[in-house]
């Protein structure tokens, strides 16, 4: 149970970064950290003590495999994570070109 709580603390660290930092790159980093903790949590749910990686082998009597379903889900989620991070970065550098800063408070002030 300890690892689940550690994983949740990692999620909270990412949330803290998103809530308190004012630099857009730091916010992107915070989102990545939250993503990583979610992947880790899902991968840990499917783990079985002394299990084998879910790849079939010959000559084994009653092998115990790790649950392949969360792994398949996380596999797709990782690639989506890269795409969304790239999208956030694109928005960030677009804002940087317009306002000359990564500070999101400046964007608020200069709006109207």
């Amino acid at each position: 149970m300890t690892v689940y709580i550690m994983c949740f603390i990692l999620f909270l660290v990412g949330l803290y970064g998103v809530l308190t930092r004012r630099n857009m790159i730091k916010i992107v980093i915070g989102f990545s950290i939250m993503e990583f903790s979610c992947f880790l949590f899902l991968a840990m749910i499917g783990y079985i003590e002394n299990g084998l990686a879910p790849i079939l082998k010959e000559e084994m009597e009653n092998p115990v495999y790790v649950d392949p379903l969360p792994q398949a889900m996380v596999l797709t989620a990782i690639v989506i994570g890269l795409a969304t991070t790239a999208l956030l970065l694109a928005i960030a550098i677009r804002i940087y070109k317009k306002y000359g800063t990564f500070d999101i408070r400046k964007v608020n002030e200069l709006k109207g």
Partner: peptide, 18 residues
């Protein structure tokens, strides 16, 4: 360590590109 080599391969490449 969680016996997920597929995830490890994808994550190491994706992290490098990121």
């Amino acid at each position: 360590n969680l016996r997920a080599p597929d995830l490890a391969i994808v994550q190491i490449v994706v992290e490098t590109i990121t």
